[in-house]
């Protein structure tokens, strides 16, 4: 008896089916490309209001409707694109003006004390806190290393950017202002990277970036909205 061959399944239409599925997924899905600006809101705490900061350390930024931006203690109207340089000027305070934020030199000893304290804390930490204590210790060690590398450039700045806005200011202005402030900090970091490490921000290692972020730490506080 001749052997009967099993009829082959025609796979020619398989491609069509797969294409159909592919197109369906292309239409119903979106690439994940969302980017955003992160912010940590202050916790709601009952009790006395926080201590007022020395007036010279506060950098006032004020957003109003129709994209109007005011800057500094005299609330002078400025252009949005000037914000990064203005912020840089104030934070560095190279001319040591008495009405601009003060900078203080940090010593190796005081950072070493913090590292030791954190090390002790880690040893005594209960199970569930070990990870957060480890992170703290790492951070303080990194700060010590940053001081080694950047030396006197690593000053303790007591500035606070106080961001205010009116109720009727547009959200776009607010985001742009935030963006420009961040650009200001980035400008500071980039300048220092070129000066000390002789490299651009984009060519730095993760650790170097981390350290520069410690040297120029963002300190933006948001006041309640004014009428």
């Amino acid at each position: 008896m001749p052997k009967r061959q099993a009829p082959e399944v025609n796979a020619g239409s398989m491609a069509d089916i797969a294409f159909l599925l592919l197109i369906f997924f292309l239409v119903t899905s979106e690439m994940s490309k969302e980017s955003g600006m992160f912010q940590l809101l202050p916790e709601k705490v009952e009790g006395p209001p926080p201590e007022p900061v020395n007036k010279r350390n506060v950098i006032e930024v004020f957003a109003r409707s129709k994209g109007e931006i005011r800057f500094g203690s005299d609330l002078k109207e400025v252009k949005m694109s000037d914000i990064p340089n203005l912020l840089k000027e104030r934070v560095l305070n190279l001319s040591n003006r008495k009405d601009w934020p003060e900078n203080r030199l940090i010593t190796t000893e005081e950072l070493q004390i913090i590292v030791e304290k954190n090390r002790k804390n880690l040893e005594d930490a209960p199970e569930e806190k070990i990870r957060s204590e480890q992170r703290k210790l790492k951070k303080s060690q990194l700060r010590l290393k940053a001081l080694e590398i950047f030396g006197d450039e690593f000053k303790k700045s007591s500035h606070v950017v106080n961001m205010q806005a009116t109720q009727d200011a547009e959200y776009e202005t607010y985001i742009q202002l935030k963006d420009e402030l961040k650009k200001g900090y980035q400008l500071l970091r980039n300048d220092l990277a070129i000066k000390v490490l002789k490299r651009d921000w984009d060519d730095l290692t993760l650790q170097e970036k981390e350290m520069l972020k410690m040297v120029y730490k963002e300190n933006i506080s948001e006041a309640p909205v004014v009428q």
């Binding site: 202050p42 916790e43 957003a63 009727d168 547009e170 607010y174």
Partner: peptide, 30 residues
């Protein structure tokens, strides 16, 4: 995700509500 023409007053009301619910980590999508 906030429309760019939105007034800040409303955005801040929402942020207050988030603080009340102790959802403190926020991200403005841009």
């Amino acid at each position: 995700k906030v429309d760019k023409k939105t007034k800040l007053g409303i955005v801040n009301e929402v942020k207050e509500e988030l603080r009340d619910a102790s959802a403190l980590k926020i991200n403005y999508i841009v």
